[in-house]
Amino acid sequence: MAKHWWKALAVIILVYVIIAGFTVEIPIIGTNGQSSRGLFFHVPMWICMYTMFTISVINSVLYLSKYDLRRDAYASSAASVGVFYGILGFATGTLWATYTWGGSFTRDPKQMLTAVALMIYMAYLVLRLSIPDIDKRARISAVFNIFAFALLIPLTYIIPRMVDSLHPGSATTPGFASSDTDNHMKWVLYPAFIGWTLLSVWIYTLLVRYKKLELKNIFK
């Protein structure tokens, strides 16, 4: 039981975030209106996605240095959870955009490039399915994973900051800073980061356990 305290913590925090996220008093600014509440759900999804992809790429590098199949299980589970969170983040983002930017798919660079990055990771998952041999699959997908991560960072993090975008923090718009965020929002936002990340790690450990069982069955 002592090992599982963080799962309870995740549930408690998320219950708090969901209740507070919809009820807390937020400043109503321009077209954003009540849709600013998307902040509590949209941004943490990306934090989770980056966390998962980072875990994934670290395990891929470790796999290539040690050739331990467990590392491959870690990397692939983390990548699939990451893609799942990426899709959620994209969905919440388009929902938010529908009401504030006046369209689900505006030609916003960050939105487009994130879609591209997600497609690269989906290609990673397809690539895994296409190779039947376990060792070969692990090796090739690890190489592609490193390649994908090296593209993910410039695509979603560097380029959108250099060009004009509707997102905060691009060339022409002010970035998200802790100094100008409303205090009420901060009290929900930071727990939201922690809560969603814990939930993603939880899903990830479940997936890892399942994949390890699969590996065990193969080697029996």
Binding site: V116, M119, A123, L127, S130, I131, I140
Partner: peptide
Amino acid sequence: ANQNAALMAIMGFP
């Protein structure tokens, strides 16, 4: 990956 041309397209285009 088995000389798969379709795979090339899937990986390459994004």
